[in-house]
Write a protein that binds this DNA or RNA. Structure first.
Length: 153
DNA sequence: GCCAACGTTGGC
DNA sequence: GCCAACGTTGGC
């Protein structure tokens, strides 16, 4: 069992949007490192911190889980999609995605708050210049965040 | 809107 | 394989 942090722009897809559906396909990832995490690392049932980015209050907004293993992202083949990739073919797809199922909304653990905890100082998402939309979360970090969500409401 | 940091592309 | 130029991310 592994843990992940996945960024989404709430203007596009928020935790509320995902909660309203059984699961959603995580389309649109166009970064090799993030793709490899989905393709090589993610397994059904892995824990996900749902992070809102590029918004007024960036931070962790909910808990989710991985609901499928990786499969080709269909938007890479769609000419009209902003995620279209002319170099991808059906035979050799370049981009993959997984399904994500929301579990619940949490209080907003803002980026500013996350930065105050020494226990989380090594979190990838908190590192300077970190832009990856999908990052692994260490078990210690996951546990600390679960504890935070129980203790401080 | 600014801009630092990082990733990708392509000429050589 | 190097690296400059360019594009993107995302906090502020």
């Amino acid at each position: 069992m592994a843990y992940w942090l996945m960024k989404s722009e709430p203007d596009e897809i928020s935790i509320d949007d995902v909660l309203a559906l059984p699961s959603i396909p995580w389309f649109g990832v166009r970064n090799y490192q993030a793709r490899n995490f989905m393709r090589d690392g993610m397994r059904i049932g892995d824990g996900v911190l749902f992070y809102h980015s590029s918004c007024a209050e960036p931070g962790i907004a909910g808990l989710a889980e991985v609901a499928s293993t990786a499969y080709p992202d269909h938007t890479q083949f769609e000419k009209d999609s902003k995620y279209f990739d002319p170099k991808a073919t059906q035979e050799t797809p370049r981009w993959m995605m997984v399904d994500v199922k929301a579990k619940r909304k949490t209080r907003l653990l803002s980026l500013a708050e996350l930065r105050t905890y020494p226990e989380l100082a090594d979190m990838t998402v908190l590192q300077k210049g970190s832009r990856l939309s999908i990052t692994p979360v260490k078990p210690d970090e996951w546990r600390f965040i679960q504890k935070l969500l129980k203790e401080k409401v």
